[in-house]
Amino acid sequence: MKTPVVLVTGFLGSGKTTLISRLLERPDMGETAVIVNELGEIGIDHHLLRRVDERTVLLASGCVCCVLRGDLADELRDLLDRRDAGEVPHFGRVVIETTGVADPTPIVMTLLSDPVVRNHYELESVVATVDGVHGLNGPESVKQVAVADRLVITKADIAAPGGRANLEEQLARLNPTAHARAATFGEVEPEWLFDGAARDPRDIDLVRGPGHRELDHDVRSCVLYLDEVDWTAFGLWLTMLLQARGQDILRVKGFLNVGGDGPVLVNCVQHAVHPPVHLDEWPDDDRRSRLVFIGRDLDAERLRESLTAFDRVARS
């Protein structure tokens, strides 16, 4: 069984450390290894705390977003070896805290691509903390929100009610696939954060409505609704799209009706693609394909026309 990994990201001062510290205090958290860039305020007690120096490796392909975190892959492999050898306490989960300005994409790419890491670890969810008082803070925090499966709006006790409502609306527009919850001093139920949101089909909640959403730091989200789509045509189309516009497409997540009993769950973070999951059944009565795109310069109608054209060729 793979060890689940939770990635906690969020801008400087947005409450990542407080969130993790509170979670680790809870008796139901189990044994957790925590990987951080800076040792400091996290209370560890019976948990395992490891520090890494951020070291990125640019792949020979030169694909800029496919930078790997060599330090993290080394650390995760080392943890496995040491756990097997009994040199470190047993742990059943890993929490990785990023730096405030970090782009979480290389970490996701590392977890999905390193041959050893992806065979022993599984990305459970990406959690982003958002400062409930100051809100989003530049392109780094916009990207962190786009990549997230769960959003924790911190400092709920001191945020103005109107301001928080605006922030929640802003986050819903930016990433309609991520569920958000407000918290004070990091008080969040662990099961809400650690329920496998990255791979859970029930997690895609588009009740906030389809169509284009307003610009947010030049990043917008849109939802594509289609009927049945040929899987081969989709794979071809998406790889071509990500080659052409991968720098601008921060996230793709959704269901695809490929004609089977259940849909295929698609989840991409820029060029990092989670292994597609063929589900046995649909989570609801809606049988349409529905894909959320988050990025810059997105036009849902152009995306839909293009994918439809590829699909038509596959069926002709």
């Binding site: 691509s113 041959p115 081969t232 790889t239 060029h271 990092a272 693609v273 292994p275 597609p276």
Partner: peptide, 18 residues
């Protein structure tokens, strides 16, 4: 896995239908 590079992969995600 990278949608583009295909590096580091045993099999590309879009080619797993075999």
């Amino acid at each position: 896995m990278c949608a583009l590079c295909g590096v580091i992969l045993n099999q590309h995600w879009a080619e797993q239908d075999g």
